[in-house]
Amino acid sequence: MATMTTTNQAAASTRQERPERAARTISPPVDIYETEKTYVLLADMPGVMPSGLEVVAERDELIVRGRVERPAAAPDYQEFELEDYYRAFTLTEDLDTDGISATLRDGVLRVEIPKSPGVQPKKIPVRTE
């Protein structure tokens, strides 16, 4: 499996879903990009309401869980089935886990993970004499 870890500045690499999880879950598709100060993770999780969303960062792991409400009866014609979501990512030391923020809009989860101040590019002001 390809990881998103770069050679010298690692952020998070996708981890295999844990085999011990018995409940059926879907791994949501994600985009991960990097800005100067943060890593941004976007995950498609349609059907999840804010009350059913859980984003947990503990130790070196970021876990995203989403619960969906399944319809009482199966549809007459069906191309998709709503399932709960689960995906875990490995966090590296260069990330500030205390500053993580998450928002949910139109079925897309957005998690912003600030880089630790030590790894953020520092601008050196240049004085002219």
């Binding site: 870890t5 994600v30 991960i32 498609d44």
Partner: peptide, 12 residues
């Protein structure tokens, strides 16, 4: 966001 900034792109 430029292509170079992406580590992973799975969402269509």
């Amino acid at each position: 966001v430029s292509d170079e900034q992406y580590h992973r792109r799975e969402r269509p």
